[in-house]
Computed example of a mutant assay.
Amino acid sequence: MSRRVVTWASISIDGYTSGPGGPEQDTWLYEHATKKESAEYFEGVWRGADTAVLGRTNYEGFHAVWPGITRDPATDPRTRELGRWLDSVEKVVASRTLQEAPWENSRITRDLEGEVKRLIDEPGRDILVLNSASVIQALLAADLVDDVRFSVVPVILGGGLRLFPEGLPSSRWTLASSAALAHGAVSLHYRRA
């Protein structure tokens, strides 16, 4: 049985994964990610995966933050477990420009589609694409995604980086599950029909 490719992202009501000012100004995203309800829900997603695929921007951002969060004694146990998973999981970074991937268990690929096809055929659990819109878009275009999971956060950004831009090929999906989180976000899980 081949492994499943699962994408994960947080988006605004108007469909953006990052606002007009870029990641440095995405306080809405950080506020959502640090809510207890978000962490509880996301734990059910990442625990099923043993490979993470990221774009360069998310890889560098995660690496800059997570090792410190993981080692901070004030970090709550659930967040610390996520940090340990991020440290130990196999991380594949899709980049044309990155020259080195210093975070443990990381490697760079220049051939995203080819690498994901190889991963699918290897033994293991889910392959999780972590909040990297360009990687998600490329894998959707290559018809390599089995599950699309995302949280819709109650903000309108008015511009930025779209998760689903115009030009993606048509495809059909069925709703596998949905959850309303206490702070107003809605988490959705779709499976390829």
Rank of each mutant, 00 (worst) to 15 (best):
V155D: 01
G160R: 15
G159C: 12
V155A: 06
V153S: 09
G160H: 13
L181H: 04
V148N: 09
I127Y: 10
R172F: 07
T174W: 02
G167H: 13
T174P: 00
V155R: 03
N131T: 00
V129E: 00
I127E: 11
F164Q: 05
L157P: 01
L181S: 09
A185E: 04
A138Q: 08
L188H: 02
G184Y: 10
A185D: 04
G160W: 08
H183M: 11
V186H: 01
D146G: 11
A133C: 02
S187T: 05
A142G: 09
I156N: 07
L128D: 01
L168W: 12
L163A: 13
L140V: 05
D126M: 06
F150Y: 15
V135C: 01
L188Q: 01
V129R: 09
A141R: 15
V186K: 08
L188S: 04
L163V: 12
V153F: 13
G184F: 09
I127D: 03
R149I: 14
P154H: 05
D143N: 10
S151W: 00
G158L: 06
S170W: 14
V186G: 07
A185R: 02
R162A: 10
R172M: 11
L130T: 00
A176V: 11
G184V: 03
P169G: 10
D143M: 11
A133E: 02
G158Y: 12
L144C: 13
S151P: 06
D126L: 10
A133G: 10
R149K: 14
P169S: 10
H189C: 01
V148G: 01
S171K: 07
G184D: 03
L188Y: 04
G124S: 07
G160N: 15
S187W: 02
G167Q: 08
R125A: 15
V186I: 09
A180H: 11
V186A: 10
A185C: 02
V135P: 03
D147W: 12
A133F: 05
G159A: 06
I127L: 12
A142I: 10
E166D: 11
G124C: 07
S134A: 13
L161V: 15
L157W: 07
T174C: 01
A185L: 02
S151C: 11
L139Q: 06
L128E: 00
P169W: 09
L181G: 05
H189T: 01
A176F: 00
L181F: 13
L128R: 07
V186F: 01
L188K: 02
N131M: 04
A182F: 02
L140A: 08
F150G: 00
I127A: 04
R149Q: 11
E166S: 15
L144N: 11
G158A: 03
S187P: 01
R172K: 15
N131R: 12
V155S: 07
L175Q: 06
S151K: 08
Q137T: 03
A141H: 12
A185H: 05
L161H: 02
V129Y: 04
S151Q: 12
V155W: 10
P165L: 15
V153Y: 05
